[in-house]
């Protein structure tokens, strides 16, 4: 059968012993994570934003899981952390909206976040909600990956 356990990274020894895969993925993963951060923070200027950045970040961790084993990926980012972070991401988004209300604006009216210049307030608001989206998306993607890849282990 073409698909066996090591292709999901469940028996780490065999995938990890493939030198080319190990070296290439180790060279790539830092750049994938860095690119995710670039897409996140450069979303105001170029293509991208929270959703794309979150997915790319999760892809980097999943690549680590595929090569070095699910267990190893779970040590890098524990399942408990992604569960909490997925909720925190959404809360950061909603919290930004409520902060605008607290400062006298309407829900998600970022202009009030800076009392000198509403345009700056817009920038702060967008950076905050994009961060919320990025955190939520990356965490949920990893959550689903952990759940599906860990399924055959029981």
């Amino acid at each position: 059968m073409p698909l066996s356990e090591q292709e999901m990274g469940k028996s780490p020894m065999r995938m990890r012993d493939k030198l080319v895969l190990r070296v290439v993925s180790m060279a790539f993963i830092p750049f994938i994570l860095l690119f995710a951060l670039y897409v996140q923070f450069h979303g105001d200027y170029g293509p991208g934003g929270g959703f794309q950045a979150g997915v790319i970040f999760a892809a980097g961790v999943i690549l680590h899981g595929l090569i070095f084993g699910l267990r190893s990926a779970e040590r890098v980012i524990p399942p408990k952390v992604v569960e909490i972070m997925s909720a925190l991401g959404l809360l950061l988004y909603v919290g930004t909206g409520l902060l605008c209300v607290a400062l006298g604006g309407r829900f998600l009216e970022y202009g009030v976040l800076d009392h000198h210049d509403p345009v700056h307030g817009q920038h702060y608001g967008i950076i905050l909600v994009e961060a919320g989206v990025g955190i939520a998306v990356a965490s949920v993607m990893l959550c689903i990956y952990y759940a599906v890849a860990g399924r055959g282990r029981r």
């Binding site: 979303g43 105001d44 920038h123 967008i126």
Partner: peptide
């Protein structure tokens, strides 16, 4: 109003 080069994000 928003002054962001990427209007998609705005």
């Amino acid at each position: 109003e928003i002054d962001m080069p990427n209007i998609v994000t705005a």
